[in-house]
Design a protein around this nucleic acid. Structure first.
Length: 1027
RNA sequence: GCUGAAGUGGUGGAAUUGGUAGACACGUUGGACUUAAAAUCCAAUGUCCAUUAGGACGUACGGGUUCAAGUCCCGUCUUCAGUACCA
């Protein structure tokens, strides 16, 4: 009875789909458990073996929790808005919805064949209007809300309007724009509607603002900082400019403190929490304003050390600071301007990498110390960043190393304000053990006291206050793209108006092309039917715009993170068209218990979702404060790229080029050498050596009579990616396959390959070995391994087990198909373990090969078939089973899936050796295995006579009593080195152990007459004899 | 620079509290079965010395604590990831 995995897997996948085995109920007596994967973006390339890693882990956990008696929600969907589909649309004219639909079909097919226990009845797609209707609705709620600092909560904006009408804004503690003017109730009531709307926009949680953005003209869109690599766009490598634009922003800064505090309440890894903490970047200190001498200007700075205010000996402004041009004296003007220009040329990366160089220029201007009234020189320096704080610092060289270095470099005095501290070599930044000196009223105080006093005195002067600064900036929410959620917004007199919930969704309009317009408007600017009629509440033709009843609609779309910031709630009630999810569903499922995904979302998706959830909680839409209770980052599966090495050459002497004809050059350009043929890549000396050896060959290969022509040629092997499918396990290249591959065109048609032995390959005389390197899987690197062929050749259960067996879930690891035979072999052994019967009544039984499907006994072929019996399990059987239960359960709880695969292998090896056929052992073993290899588990479980899916079976209970041992094989060590082992009863006393061990022949042999100094006995563990 | 993670056979990786380092696999070698191959099964496999018995050395490197260290402490190096010259 052979293990026909393809048939078995197809059978059970069909069974699960037809019986809706994994459909979750929104009510149950069982406790709930919500397991979620970060949903994929359905790219055109389909799934590769890296994608399922996290899905397999979460599926194992979800199935395990079902066995443990939980009502499990385990959904899946697609983050289906995104730039790649739009890029493809621009190139081909295909509507992104069409390609997205096709891609999703591929994804679904690929996901289904791996046997995930997803509840597909709850599928969500962010690009589906029935979904983005609610994304638009949440946007409207953000627009209709403001944040009260006093109660630390968001409230409806109508309540703010009431306050304004009653008492003005003077007493309102809200998170708002910096430049809000104070007004009274009377003033508010006298304002025009437009003026009122303008003011409210300064308070709304989503607002329009002029922001400086990274504008990429070639892509026609704004890019996030992390979409820019080395000053050009990550996608396509186009140049990027800074540009001011009016865009929607999200007032995420209002939630900075709660986002920080909330981290303590969730079970995430420390490294992830650390990234979010750094991203939020809280620092507590004070803002201080310095008057500029001879100008009616103030420079405001933020400092974390107001206690060191008397140590200020200069100030530094960022070169971009707005006051620089105002205060610079005529004498310093040319120098300052030159410095500003030089700084502007340097990229941020440059400035960052070059920490050691100290540069700066004196502006010629002075500020006044708030207390001592001494003049303080004002400098500019590029170590001060315009984007952080106020773009200016008060420099205290004795307490800050950067200030110290700057002062030393420019011979600025370094006053010491710390008692008994030597600052002749470096600054003293330790604030815990300082006593302030030379600081007037702060003398003799420690850091804490001095800080408090300094802030108090500054407040008295009206020149400062205590302040907490966050690095977290408000998030830009507009994208100049087509394939994203349209805003439910139209404009009346330039003021944004929200469309009522009843008329949502606002669907994406059709456009002819997906590019920005010639005038630089977003792609929606191309739509002909993109105006809002307030009478019919419908989208109408643009030429009906009269700005009385018909108004223009917003042309931007929302960013990728809009849809992914709340999708986990939609799964709870995915088909609800009245609400984003019903109150009952939200109450029942609460939030995600376990979230698995890549660490690349640490500061994007994971921060924005937390922000939206906190907002939704404030407004009473949901009842939870955090979206994801526990989060695990799965590591990436890397590809092993294959390289061939094209000889690229250059001439030490340019005239040489003429000596060699162009025909020859073409040939030279087409020679590939095997990996072992060279040792070092770019190093000239070894190249020369290599060249001498190669020269004869080149002359021969290139058909050159006169090898001297190659005299001054410098040869460098240039690595080129080739498809990994043309390389076998021994790194040998299938040259014919490569030559005939259409995708490479003529590239390799006439190529000459020099093999391992150094001969030109012609037929089977030599082999060509590729070079290998581990890299991220990507289409362009030709190193993508597709799960389809693995499912075909080994089965989904093998794939699942193998991906887990590869190593710890969180770790980055290269994919290597060679190892899959190990887990596949295990499944075959498992199958065999259940088919030890000799003569069976299995109707599906057939025999085509007596050697694999039966065995010889007494010269006869004995048929082999399903053979689980009711035999009483032996002590050894029970021990193996319970050892396995214990380990597997611990492993799953610790997400250590790789070790439980080993445990299964050990169990099957042991039970096979024990010739175990007992149902009492083999049935619970299947339940243990079923989260990992569900298909084979279902098949064998049904063969055991069960009519229900194994997913309903209870997880076996571990019983300690089967593992209790009466004896222990003690390792006997001498001076810490294990020499032999000795089987002794566990209840033996220390004294008896010592006596037995000391009397042993081997002990005497080891000691050779010496008397041991000491004998260490740890009962149940070890014996160590010292001496 | 800073922060975080890591470094163990030819390879992927085990070793949860300090207690027999290398589980489980892959690969390799040898053998059985076969006309042959595949499949399956058996054996060996950290390195070095030794015919065997056995021994020496071994968890990036250098020290230390301990009866005992992959595990704890100090220092150094390397790799990967994140990042912000954050006042």
């Amino acid at each position: 009875m052979q293990y026909h995995f393809n048939d078995i897997e197809a059978k059970w996948q069909k069974y699960w789909a037809e019986n809706k085995t994994f459909q979750a109920d929104n009510s149950s007596d069982k406790p709930k458990y919500y397991v979620l994967d970060m949903f994929p973006y359905p790219s055109g390339a389909g799934l590769h073996v890296g994608h399922p890693l996290g899905y397999i882990a979460s599926d194992i956990y979800a199935r395990y929790k079902r066995h443990k008696g939980f009502n499990v929600l385990h959904p899946q969907g697609y983050d289906s808005f995104g730039l790649p589909a739009e890029q493809y649309a621009i190139q081909t004219g295909q509507h992104p919805a069409v390609t997205t639909e096709e891609n999703i079909k591929t994804y679904r097919r690929q996901l289904d064949q791996i046997g995930f226990s997803f509840d597909w009845s709850r599928e969500v797609r962010t690009s589906d209007p029935n979904y983005y209707k609610w994304t638009q609705w949440i946007f409207i709620q953000l627009f209709e809300s403001w944040y009260c600092k006093h109660t630390n909560k968001a409230f409806p904006i109508v309540e703010l309007v009431k306050i304004f009408a009653l008492e003005g804004n003077a007493a309102v503690e809200a998170v708002c724009d910096d430049n809000v003017d104070v007004f009274t109730a009377a003033q508010w009531n006298s304002f025009s509607s437009i003026k009122q709307q303008e003011i409210l926009l300064q308070y709304r949680l989503t607002y329009l603002a002029e922001t400086e953005v990274n504008w990429c003209p070639a892509l026609g869109t704004v890019l996030a900082n992390d979409e820019i690599v080395n000053g050009v766009s990550e996608r396509g490598g186009h140049p990027v400019l800074r540009k001011k634009m009016t865009q929607w922003s999200m007032r995420i800064s209002a939630y900075a403190e709660r986002l920080l505090q909330g981290l303590d309440t969730i079970d995430w890894t420390d490294s992830l929490k650390e990234s979010q903490k750094n991203w939020i970047g809280k620092s507590v200190g004070a803002s201080v304003s310095f008057n500029v001498n001879n100008h009616d200007k103030e420079i405001e700075v933020f400092t974390t050390r107001p206690d060191t205010i008397f140590g200020v000996s200069f100030m530094t402004l960022a070169p971009e600071h707005e006051l620089v041009s105002v205060i610079t004296t005529p004498e310093q003007k040319s120098e300052v301007e030159a410095y500003i220009q030089a700084t502007a040329k340097r990229s941020e990366r440059d400035r960052m990498a070059d920490v050691k160089t100290i540069s700066g220029v004196f502006t010629g201007a002075y500020a006044e110390h708030p207390f001592s009234k001494e003049p303080i020189p004002i400098w500019i320096g590029d170590y001060v960043l315009a984007g952080y704080g106020t773009g200016a610092v008060m420099s205290v060289p004795c307490g800050d190393q950067r200030d110290y270095d700057f002062a030393k470099h420019f011979n600025i005095p370094i006053p010491n304000i710390f008692e008994g501290v030597d600052i002749s070599e470096e600054a003293y930044a330790d604030k815990e053990n300082t006593v302030i000196a030379n600081s007037d009223f702060l003398n003799g105080m420690n850091y804490k006291k001095a800080t408090k006093r300094a802030i108090f005195e500054l407040e008295q002067l009206g020149q400062g206050e205590g302040k907490t600064n966050y690095r977290l900036r408000d998030a830009v929410f507009s994208r100049q793209r087509y394939w994203g959620e349209p805003f439910p917004v139209y404009y009346v007199n330039g003021m944004p108006q929200m469309i009522d919930k009843a008329h949502l969704p606002i669907r994406l309009p059709d456009v002819e092309k997906y590019l920005p317009t010639e005038t630089g408007e977003p792609p929606l600017g191309r739509a002909d039917v993109w105006a809002w009629c307030t009478e019919t509440n419908a989208i109408v033709d643009n030429n009906k715009i009269n700005n009385k009843t018909v108004f223009p609609l917003e042309l931007n779309t929302m960013p990728g993170w809009a849809g992914s910031s709340w999708y986990f709630f939609r799964y709870m009630d995915a088909n609800n068209d009245q609400e984003f999810a019903s109150e009952e569903a939200l109450k029942y499922w609460e939030n995600v218990d376990l979230y698995i995904g890549g660490s690349e979302h640490a500061t994007g998706h994971l921060l924005y979702s937390r922000f939206w959830v906190k907002f939704m909680k404030d407004r009473g839409f949901v009842s939870v404060e955090e979206p994801f209770k526990k989060l695990i980052n799965q590591g990436m599966i890397l590809g092993t790229s294959a390289f061939v090495y094209r000889l690229s050459y250059m001439f030490a002497n340019p005239r040489e080029e003429e000596k060699i004809g162009s025909r020859l050059l073409k040939k030279l350009n087409n020679i590939y050498i095997s990996h072992a043929e060279f040792i070092s890549k770019g190093d000239l000396e070894s190249n020369k050596k290599y060249l001498i050896e190669l020269k004869g060959k080149l002359a021969e290969v290139a058909g050159l009579e006169n090898a001297e022509a190659l005299e001054n040629l410098i040869v460098v092997p240039l690595p080129i990616h080739v498809k990994v499918e043309y390389v076998n396990a021994s790194d040998e290249l299938d040259i014919e396959g490569l030559r005939n591959d259409g995708e490479f065109g003529e590239d390799f048609k006439d190529a000459i390959f020099i093999g391992e032995k150094g001969a030109v390959i012609n037929g089977g005389n030599d082999v060509y070995k590729v070079g290998r390197e581990v890299e991220k899987m990507s289409k362009s690197k030709y190193n993508v391994v597709n799960p389809d062929s693995i499912c075909q050749d080994y089965g989904a259960d093998s794939l699942r087990l193998y991906e887990m067996f590869l190593g710890p879930l969180e770790q980055y690891k290269p994919w290597n198909t060679a190892g899959i035979s190990g887990v596949h072999g295990f499944l075959k052994k498992l199958w065999k373990l259940y088919h030890q019967g000799d003569d069976i009544n299995d109707p599906s039984y057939y025999i085509s090969d007596p050697k694999t499907e039966g065995y010889y006994a007494g010269g006869k072929v004995v048929k082999r078939g399903f053979g689980v019996t009711d035999a009483e399990p032996t002590k050894d059987n029970l021990k193996t089973l319970h050892k396995t239960i214990k380990k597997v359960e611990e492993d799953i709880e610790n997400f250590s899936f790789n070790t439980s695969v080993s445990t299964f292998m050990i169990a099957v090896n042991e039970l096979t050796a024990q010739k175990c056929t007992s149902r009492d052992i083999l049935e619970p073993l299947l339940v243990l295995l079923s989260p990992y290899a569900p298909h084979i588990a279902e098949e064998l479980y049904s063969k055991l006579g069960h009519k229900e899916s194994i997913s309903t079976a209870k997880f076996p209970k571990f019983e300690e009593k089967y593992l209790v041992e009466s004896s222990k094989n003690y390792p006997i060590s001498f001076n810490g080195k294990m020499r032999f082992t000795l089987e002794l009863p566990l209840d033996m006393s220390k004294e008896d152990i010592e006596a037995t061990v000391m009397a042993h022949d081997k002990t005497k042999e080891q000691l050779q007459g010496r008397t041991p100094k000491k004998v260490i006995i740890v009962p149940g563990k070890i014996v160590n004899i010292v001496g």
